[in-house]
Design a protein around this nucleic acid. Structure first.
Lengths: 152, 152
DNA sequence: GCAAATTTAATGTAAAAACATTTGATGTCA
DNA sequence: TGACATCAAATGTTTTTACATTAAATTTGC
């Protein structure tokens, strides 16, 4: 069923309003799916995102500022998020040699192992997305870029 | 710039992963925009969504359960959200005649006025979305429905 | 070189969310 | 009817988020 039925709304004011509501609704749908999966590994969605950013840099370190820049939702407590990951031995903090204000963060082997494990699980839920063809998925991305005014 | 540049990622594993990340990124972009607007009126995004649900029913009441069903992100504390709205005189609680477990919630005139005011403001930020044509906005919605397996 | 401004990360605090439990009301069925 | 399951809403508790402030290091301009 379509978005109107999902949230039991009769009609939307404009195709734009409808698209916006649909993005938010779909986002929540995706987050729920993914959180359920991550919960089994005792990682939150935010922690998972930070881990993926760190893996993207590995074996290079990245500063807390760098993490915030790359995060999907910029928030101020990346610092505390790193704290949580350190408690689980998934990352380590290292002092930054050339600027002592900054703090380098690096993913540990344990963190990489966890991500590898999660990659496998991901295929399980990614299969749920294959109701779109690869071309449609790209079109979707392109439209979102354009919506944000980020299209080239 | 496209999503890759926005979050400084080189490439995505698949068009599906890219679409999912883009949905989440765009959702955050939209929420920030909208929250900034709502903040001036001392309403949160969640409270705003509940108010719109209530307006959709007006002049009929709706139960707390009904609100949760229609919310974009189902959470358990719709009850407390209603509390907040009552404090601001935007809604009222009424006992439900035929089932004393349930509680009817109705939007007040003050609530309707606030929404009307916000509707005007909305056009301001909706203009930001007109980089898409109406047809593209509909295509976007359709692809999202299909992604969730909700296409007809 | 030094004071002021800026940057980086951490921390304090209040509000909100997530999750479980409780309370009261209704439905079910022997 | 009465025990038991179910349901609706509220409440308790812990964790997370949002927002502001602080502390230390670096940069800038004079």
């Amino acid at each position: 069923m379509s978005i109107e039925q999902d949230i039991q709304q009769k009609a939307f004011k404009s195709p734009y309003t409808k698209a916006v509501v649909n993005i938010m609704y779909t986002n929540n749908w995706l987050c729920s799916l993914q959180s359920d999966l991550l919960k089994r590994y005792d990682v939150t969605l935010q922690q998972y995102n930070v881990l993926r950013i760190l893996r993207g840099q590995h074996p290079n370190p990245i500063t807390v500022c760098g993490i915030i820049e790359r995060m999907l939702d910029k928030m101020s407590n990346a610092s505390r998020l790193v704290d949580k990951l350190i408690l689980k031995d998934l990352v380590i903090r290292k002092e930054c040699p050339h600027d002592r204000r900054q703090v380098d963060v690096i993913i540990t082997d344990k963190g990489l192992d966890l991500l590898a494990e999660l990659d496998n699980q991901q295929s399980e839920w990614e299969a749920a997305l294959h109701k779109l063809t690869p071309e449609e998925a790209l079109t979707l991305s392109h439209l979102l870029d354009k919506l944000r005014g980020s299209a080239e």
